[in-house]
Design a protein around this nucleic acid. Sequence first.
DNA 1: CGCGCCCTTGAATTAAGTCAACTGATGTGG
DNA 2: CCACATCAGTTGACTTAATTCAAGGGCGCG
Lengths: 227, 227
Amino acid sequence: MNHDDLVEVRRLPCAVRELDGNEDFVRQGDRPKESAIVVEGMLARYHVLPDGARQYLSFHLPGDMPDSQCLFIDEMDHAVCAIGASKAATVPHGDLLALFERRPHVGAAIWRQTLIDAAIFRGAITNNSARSGPARMAHLFCELFYRSRASALAEEYSCAFPITLIQLGEALGLSLASTNRSLATLRENDLADLKSGSLIMRRWTALADYAGFSPHYLHLRRELFRR
Amino acid sequence: MNHDDLVEVRRLPCAVRELDGNEDFVRQGDRPKESAIVVEGMLARYHVLPDGARQYLSFHLPGDMPDSQCLFIDEMDHAVCAIGASKAATVPHGDLLALFERRPHVGAAIWRQTLIDAAIFRGAITNNSARSGPARMAHLFCELFYRSRASALAEEYSCAFPITLIQLGEALGLSLASTNRSLATLRENDLADLKSGSLIMRRWTALADYAGFSPHYLHLRRELFRR
DNA sequence: CGCGCCCTTGAATTAAGTCAACTGATGTGG
DNA sequence: CCACATCAGTTGACTTAATTCAAGGGCGCG
């Protein structure tokens, strides 16, 4: 994307929507006419299982488009909700699609972002399938800390982490009890900690090592839509 | 995509590459200059873990583009290999990107396919995180059978299934022993069976029910690149 | 024939789930 | 202001699902 592309992006009509913690932005089965860009807080995608349980699929920081999927697919196969009070900018699909016609490179840039989303999903498949409880948690911590830093949203050794243990378990495929015990393991080994809504990275390299984390799959470069 | 779009798609220069079973098409870390379209057999994506173990991420039938990801992301964060002897058509990125400029709707159609890929990844997260071993296997069976049928690659109650139990376990996040026992469970309940490279759906609705499978997330409509 | 690969099964072990009780914040209405 | 409810987190005891380790079976192929 060049300068002119960026100018047009900033000219997109958007409305800011404030969300309470746990409030849905879109539900499974909806056919939204607009997409969101996270402005403040955190949004998450999740599946609803037949028994009503949730499986969280991904977490989204300011600058992310958590429902880019619905640009070309009518019906939502998952829901998007706020994790803690959040703000999201909404942009009508029509305006986005028109912009892609005028400025193909904007489309390509967003396409690229959706491919990185997919890479993060693949990371989650591997994380939840091939690692122990504590290692899963460590890996997710590394991912979110790394992404927060890349978006200049982190302190040196900590970042915002508004996710509850229950939700964390529903993301990692662990029961609440195991989630807590996994966290206890990371604490005991002085690797990481959660405290009053913050993730604290105590020994960053040791944690990454423990998790088998390497950041290639995040394909970090720069962020779209940062202000 | 309209008729003219399709004509241009068929005019794309492509070379067919024959692959042995288990042969890699691209490796993690590669920077490929071309993309593949499955012509015959089955291709799969997988992660290589630090200890050398594999995590299979997705399986791809004829008509699929298993590495569409690398169109806009230089470095492969995963590998693509053949499951059983297969054929793949390779198309240079340059030609694809040029076609997207000339025919934006072709780009949009492929973008849409990559979004469906992502939906399938999300399905795998939920499958491997929230279901028991046998239910996971049942769900994957339903998915592959459904996709095979949508591509007219299935018999009434069966389809090709060249995946070994070891690979199946590496896809589902189960050990070989558990994979086998999960299969035994499906057999005992007369739900499904694997025999000489074929998946047999014994009681389709009961299996889908057992797996909690509903096909919405596949967003099936028509296939790209079928001949 | 014998080797390798894939599948199958059993027994012992371990990780994770379930159930349940309790703490400590936070918040609300009488 | 306190009583009470609520919700997130913590911990223990028990059960279950899945892993690990190990042995053996079937089959194709050089």
